[in-house]
Amino acid sequence: MQIQKRIEPLHLIFAALGGVVLLFFVAPLLNMIFKCSAGQLIETAQDSEVQRSIWLTLFTSMAATLVFSVVAIPFAYILARKNFPFKQLVNGIIDIPIVIPHSAAGIALLGIIAPDTIIGRIGETFGIKFVGGYGGIMVAMAFVSLPFLINSARDGFAAVPERLEKAALNLGAPPMRVFFTISTPLAWRAILSGLILMWARGMSEFGAVIIIAYHPMITPILIYERFGAFGLKYARPVSVLFIGICLLFFVIMRVIATRKNSA
Protein backbone atom coordinates (compact mmCIF):
# COMPACT_ATOMS: atom_id res chain seq x y z
CA MET A 1 0.00 0.00 0.00
CA GLN A 2 1.22 3.45 -0.92
CA ILE A 3 1.61 5.82 1.98
CA GLN A 4 -0.36 8.95 1.32
CA LYS A 5 1.83 12.00 1.02
CA ARG A 6 -0.86 14.59 1.52
CA ILE A 7 0.47 17.59 3.36
CA GLU A 8 -1.43 18.47 6.49
CA PRO A 9 -1.78 22.30 6.76
CA LEU A 10 -1.34 22.21 10.53
CA HIS A 11 2.03 20.50 10.13
CA LEU A 12 3.08 23.23 7.70
CA ILE A 13 2.38 25.78 10.42
CA PHE A 14 4.37 23.73 12.93
CA ALA A 15 7.29 23.49 10.48
CA ALA A 16 7.18 27.24 9.99
CA LEU A 17 7.34 27.71 13.76
CA GLY A 18 10.34 25.39 13.77
CA GLY A 19 11.97 27.64 11.21
CA VAL A 20 11.53 30.60 13.53
CA VAL A 21 13.18 28.70 16.36
CA LEU A 22 16.15 27.69 14.21
CA LEU A 23 16.55 31.24 13.02
CA PHE A 24 16.48 32.39 16.63
CA PHE A 25 19.46 30.13 17.36
CA VAL A 26 21.43 30.72 14.22
CA ALA A 27 20.85 34.38 13.36
CA PRO A 28 22.72 35.94 16.33
CA LEU A 29 25.65 33.61 15.79
CA LEU A 30 25.85 34.31 12.07
CA ASN A 31 25.50 38.05 12.70
CA MET A 32 28.39 37.90 15.11
CA ILE A 33 30.55 35.89 12.73
CA PHE A 34 29.91 38.21 9.79
CA LYS A 35 30.76 41.25 11.87
CA CYS A 36 34.26 39.91 12.49
CA SER A 37 36.86 40.42 9.80
CA ALA A 38 39.37 37.68 9.03
CA GLY A 39 42.12 40.04 10.14
CA GLN A 40 40.55 40.53 13.56
CA LEU A 41 40.15 36.80 13.98
CA ILE A 42 43.75 36.05 13.05
CA GLU A 43 44.99 38.79 15.31
CA THR A 44 42.89 37.43 18.19
CA ALA A 45 44.06 33.89 17.55
CA GLN A 46 47.65 35.08 17.88
CA ASP A 47 46.92 36.90 21.13
CA SER A 48 48.74 34.85 23.79
CA GLU A 49 46.20 35.77 26.49
CA VAL A 50 43.40 34.35 24.33
CA GLN A 51 45.40 31.23 23.50
CA ARG A 52 46.19 30.61 27.13
CA SER A 53 42.58 31.00 28.20
CA ILE A 54 41.29 28.64 25.51
CA TRP A 55 43.79 25.94 26.44
CA LEU A 56 42.96 26.46 30.09
CA THR A 57 39.23 26.11 29.41
CA LEU A 58 39.64 22.98 27.30
CA PHE A 59 41.98 21.41 29.82
CA THR A 60 40.02 22.19 33.00
CA SER A 61 36.65 21.13 31.53
CA MET A 62 38.09 17.88 30.24
CA ALA A 63 39.94 17.14 33.47
CA ALA A 64 36.83 17.94 35.54
CA THR A 65 34.80 15.56 33.38
CA LEU A 66 37.28 12.71 33.66
CA VAL A 67 38.00 13.12 37.38
CA PHE A 68 34.36 13.34 38.39
CA SER A 69 33.24 10.56 36.01
CA VAL A 70 35.12 8.11 38.23
CA VAL A 71 32.62 8.73 41.02
CA ALA A 72 29.61 9.64 38.87
CA ILE A 73 29.43 6.56 36.62
CA PRO A 74 29.30 3.93 39.41
CA PHE A 75 26.76 6.14 41.19
CA ALA A 76 24.65 6.26 38.01
CA TYR A 77 24.75 2.47 37.92
CA ILE A 78 23.36 2.21 41.44
CA LEU A 79 20.64 4.71 40.59
CA ALA A 80 19.67 2.64 37.55
CA ARG A 81 19.70 -0.74 39.27
CA LYS A 82 18.74 -0.40 42.90
CA ASN A 83 15.70 0.80 44.70
CA PHE A 84 16.25 2.42 48.05
CA PRO A 85 14.38 4.75 50.38
CA PHE A 86 14.24 8.37 49.24
CA LYS A 87 15.46 7.49 45.76
CA GLN A 88 13.25 10.21 44.26
CA LEU A 89 14.79 12.69 46.66
CA VAL A 90 18.27 11.62 45.55
CA ASN A 91 17.27 12.04 41.90
CA GLY A 92 15.93 15.47 42.76
CA ILE A 93 19.16 16.47 44.49
CA ILE A 94 21.11 15.49 41.37
CA ASP A 95 19.06 17.94 39.32
CA ILE A 96 19.56 20.85 41.74
CA PRO A 97 22.63 22.28 39.94
CA ILE A 98 20.58 22.48 36.73
CA VAL A 99 17.83 24.59 38.26
CA ILE A 100 19.71 26.99 40.53
CA PRO A 101 21.45 30.16 39.30
CA HIS A 102 25.07 29.31 38.65
CA SER A 103 26.38 32.42 40.38
CA ALA A 104 24.53 31.25 43.47
CA ALA A 105 26.10 27.82 43.03
CA GLY A 106 29.48 29.54 42.93
CA ILE A 107 28.74 31.39 46.15
CA ALA A 108 27.64 28.16 47.82
CA LEU A 109 30.75 26.33 46.67
CA LEU A 110 33.00 29.13 47.79
CA GLY A 111 31.68 28.72 51.29
CA ILE A 112 33.12 25.22 51.59
CA ILE A 113 36.33 25.44 49.54
CA ALA A 114 37.63 28.83 50.66
CA PRO A 115 41.18 28.70 52.13
CA ASP A 116 39.84 29.01 55.69
CA THR A 117 37.59 25.95 55.41
CA ILE A 118 38.49 22.31 56.13
CA ILE A 119 38.35 21.32 52.46
CA GLY A 120 40.33 24.40 51.49
CA ARG A 121 43.03 23.52 54.00
CA ILE A 122 43.15 19.87 52.98
CA GLY A 123 43.47 20.97 49.35
CA GLU A 124 46.28 23.30 50.23
CA THR A 125 48.31 20.53 51.92
CA PHE A 126 48.03 18.53 48.67
CA GLY A 127 48.96 21.57 46.63
CA ILE A 128 45.49 22.07 45.19
CA LYS A 129 44.46 25.70 45.04
CA PHE A 130 40.73 26.11 44.83
CA VAL A 131 40.03 29.83 45.00
CA GLY A 132 41.78 31.44 42.06
CA GLY A 133 43.23 28.10 40.91
CA TYR A 134 42.68 25.17 38.56
CA GLY A 135 41.10 23.10 41.31
CA GLY A 136 38.44 25.73 41.91
CA ILE A 137 37.66 26.07 38.20
CA MET A 138 37.25 22.31 37.89
CA VAL A 139 35.05 22.07 40.97
CA ALA A 140 32.83 24.89 39.71
CA MET A 141 32.55 23.34 36.26
CA ALA A 142 31.82 19.89 37.68
CA PHE A 143 29.19 21.20 40.07
CA VAL A 144 27.06 22.58 37.28
CA SER A 145 27.75 19.94 34.63
CA LEU A 146 27.82 16.64 36.54
CA PRO A 147 24.02 16.14 36.45
CA PHE A 148 24.19 15.76 32.68
CA LEU A 149 26.62 12.86 32.96
CA ILE A 150 24.78 11.16 35.83
CA ASN A 151 21.38 11.38 34.15
CA SER A 152 22.65 10.16 30.82
CA ALA A 153 24.67 7.29 32.30
CA ARG A 154 21.77 6.28 34.55
CA ASP A 155 19.44 6.05 31.54
CA GLY A 156 22.10 4.09 29.68
CA PHE A 157 22.53 1.55 32.48
CA ALA A 158 18.77 1.26 32.94
CA ALA A 159 18.45 0.27 29.27
CA VAL A 160 20.85 -2.66 29.70
CA PRO A 161 18.74 -5.79 30.29
CA GLU A 162 19.39 -6.96 33.84
CA ARG A 163 19.15 -10.51 32.54
CA LEU A 164 22.47 -10.10 30.74
CA GLU A 165 24.17 -9.18 34.01
CA LYS A 166 22.56 -12.13 35.75
CA ALA A 167 23.68 -14.40 32.93
CA ALA A 168 27.24 -13.16 33.36
CA LEU A 169 27.09 -13.77 37.13
CA ASN A 170 25.68 -17.21 36.44
CA LEU A 171 28.80 -17.90 34.35
CA GLY A 172 30.88 -17.26 37.44
CA ALA A 173 31.96 -13.68 36.75
CA PRO A 174 32.41 -11.52 39.85
CA PRO A 175 30.22 -8.36 39.96
CA MET A 176 33.19 -6.09 39.23
CA ARG A 177 33.91 -7.94 36.00
CA VAL A 178 30.24 -7.91 35.04
CA PHE A 179 30.21 -4.13 35.52
CA PHE A 180 33.23 -3.57 33.31
CA THR A 181 32.59 -6.19 30.62
CA ILE A 182 28.81 -6.23 30.33
CA SER A 183 27.05 -3.22 31.90
CA THR A 184 29.49 -0.48 30.92
CA PRO A 185 30.12 -1.57 27.30
CA LEU A 186 26.39 -1.95 26.71
CA ALA A 187 25.65 1.47 28.24
CA TRP A 188 28.66 3.02 26.57
CA ARG A 189 26.81 5.10 23.99
CA ALA A 190 24.79 6.87 26.69
CA ILE A 191 27.81 7.25 28.99
CA LEU A 192 29.90 8.74 26.21
CA SER A 193 27.20 11.16 25.22
CA GLY A 194 26.88 12.10 28.90
CA LEU A 195 30.64 12.70 29.06
CA ILE A 196 30.53 14.90 25.96
CA LEU A 197 27.54 16.81 27.32
CA MET A 198 29.23 17.32 30.69
CA TRP A 199 32.44 18.45 29.06
CA ALA A 200 30.65 20.88 26.72
CA ARG A 201 28.58 22.24 29.59
CA GLY A 202 31.67 22.68 31.77
CA MET A 203 33.55 24.40 29.00
CA SER A 204 30.84 27.04 28.60
CA GLU A 205 30.37 27.68 32.33
CA PHE A 206 30.68 31.27 33.44
CA GLY A 207 28.61 32.08 36.53
CA ALA A 208 30.01 29.61 39.04
CA VAL A 209 33.58 29.92 37.83
CA ILE A 210 33.76 33.72 38.00
CA ILE A 211 32.85 33.65 41.69
CA ILE A 212 35.53 31.10 42.57
CA ALA A 213 38.30 31.89 40.11
CA TYR A 214 38.36 35.12 38.12
CA HIS A 215 41.98 34.28 37.48
CA PRO A 216 43.41 32.13 35.89
CA MET A 217 41.00 33.32 33.27
CA ILE A 218 38.88 30.82 31.33
CA THR A 219 37.58 32.01 27.98
CA PRO A 220 33.96 32.80 28.99
CA ILE A 221 35.37 35.14 31.64
CA LEU A 222 37.89 36.59 29.18
CA ILE A 223 35.01 37.39 26.80
CA TYR A 224 33.16 39.09 29.63
CA GLU A 225 36.22 41.05 30.66
CA ARG A 226 36.98 42.26 27.12
CA PHE A 227 33.37 43.28 26.76
CA GLY A 228 33.46 45.23 30.01
CA ALA A 229 36.85 46.84 29.41
CA PHE A 230 36.90 47.42 25.64
CA GLY A 231 33.33 46.88 24.39
CA LEU A 232 31.49 44.69 21.94
CA LYS A 233 34.00 45.04 19.13
CA TYR A 234 36.75 43.41 21.19
CA ALA A 235 34.65 40.77 22.81
CA ARG A 236 33.29 39.53 19.48
CA PRO A 237 36.38 37.91 17.87
CA VAL A 238 37.19 35.97 21.06
CA SER A 239 33.61 34.72 21.16
CA VAL A 240 33.69 33.61 17.52
CA LEU A 241 37.02 31.88 17.98
CA PHE A 242 35.89 30.07 21.13
CA ILE A 243 32.55 29.01 19.65
CA GLY A 244 34.40 27.69 16.60
CA ILE A 245 36.75 25.63 18.75
CA CYS A 246 33.94 24.31 20.93
CA LEU A 247 31.92 23.22 17.89
CA LEU A 248 34.98 21.66 16.28
CA PHE A 249 35.72 19.53 19.36
CA PHE A 250 32.07 18.70 19.78
CA VAL A 251 31.78 17.45 16.19
CA ILE A 252 35.02 15.45 16.46
CA MET A 253 33.87 13.76 19.66
CA ARG A 254 30.48 12.94 18.17
CA VAL A 255 32.10 11.41 15.10
CA ILE A 256 34.44 9.32 17.23
CA ALA A 257 31.53 8.24 19.41
CA THR A 258 29.32 7.10 16.57
CA ARG A 259 32.16 5.42 14.73
CA LYS A 260 33.15 3.43 17.80
CA ASN A 261 29.60 2.24 18.24
CA SER A 262 28.99 1.15 14.68
CA ALA A 263 32.26 -0.86 14.64
Binding site: P161, L164, A167, A168, N170, P175, L186
Partner: peptide, 20 residues
Protein backbone atom coordinates in the same frame (compact mmCIF):
# COMPACT_ATOMS: atom_id res chain seq x y z
CA UNK B 1 25.22 -18.79 48.12
CA UNK B 2 26.17 -16.04 45.64
CA UNK B 3 25.04 -16.57 42.04
CA UNK B 4 28.59 -16.73 40.74
CA UNK B 5 29.59 -19.44 43.22
CA UNK B 6 26.75 -21.92 42.75
CA UNK B 7 28.10 -24.11 39.95
CA UNK B 8 24.64 -24.23 38.40
CA UNK B 9 24.40 -23.27 34.74
CA UNK B 10 21.34 -21.63 33.25
CA UNK B 11 20.30 -21.38 29.62
CA UNK B 12 17.71 -18.62 29.28
CA UNK B 13 14.63 -18.99 27.15
CA UNK B 14 15.75 -16.03 25.03
CA UNK B 15 19.42 -17.12 25.38
CA UNK B 16 20.59 -13.77 26.84
CA UNK B 17 23.73 -13.77 24.71
CA UNK B 18 25.94 -10.73 25.17
CA UNK B 19 25.14 -8.64 22.07
CA UNK B 20 28.41 -6.70 22.06
Amino acid sequence: EKIQKRDIGLVYQDQALFPH
